[in-house]
Amino acid sequence: MSWFKKRIYPEYWQAYEAHFKQATNNHINSVRFVVFDTETTGLDIKEDRILSIGNVAILNNSIHVIDQLECYLKQDLFKAETVKIHGLLKEGSLKKISEEEAIILFLAHIKDAVLVAHHAAFDVAIINKALRRLGLPKLKNKVLDTGVLFQKTKLDTSKMHFSLDSLSERFNIPQHDRHTASGDAYITALLFLKIIPILKQSNKNLDLKDLLRSNQRIGLL
């Protein structure tokens, strides 16, 4: 009968899951957003591994620098060719933790926040992959993609995807610490803060549901 028995997850996952019991809040000013970014050994979700995670929270339209997470992971997989992007050496001087420790910290930090990332699908997928390696389910959080949010502004419809570089240039965001997880998370957070007021211009009562609504569906309506 054991296959019917509900699987017992570790305590940290239970604690994480417990945050989702409350009903979702849709007000942009009171919902907690966690903007995050991962640096990885590459772009293959199956093979590549997370090297670092950077989170920073947004509450009531401001970035709360204290509410952040920055961690570096020990990984056996090492790809010399991506070092030039993220600058993380296999044996660097940074204090590194195991993937499980990183996931524990990550879940404890995000709680039920709405996750925000640029091209979020990749970051979420690679985190989910890591969760799976630990025998855990996927992330339960709602996710926003700043790339998609930018599409919603219709400021530039020339293409579907805009890199973080091109958007930060367009929005005048200085590119400090680009290609570090925390640095990119901060740039993405500023980008998020700058996109929201533009969306509010066309929708005074903008709420979380509007942000989450897929762009394609708007097209069909």
């Binding site: 339209n61 401001s62 970035i63 709360h64 620098v65 204290i66 957070a189 500023l190 803060l193 700058k194 007021p197």
Partner: peptide, 14 residues
Amino acid sequence: ISQAVEVHYIEKGQ
């Protein structure tokens, strides 16, 4: 102090 800073984005005229 830097750790406890909050960062705000303010639009023109806001």
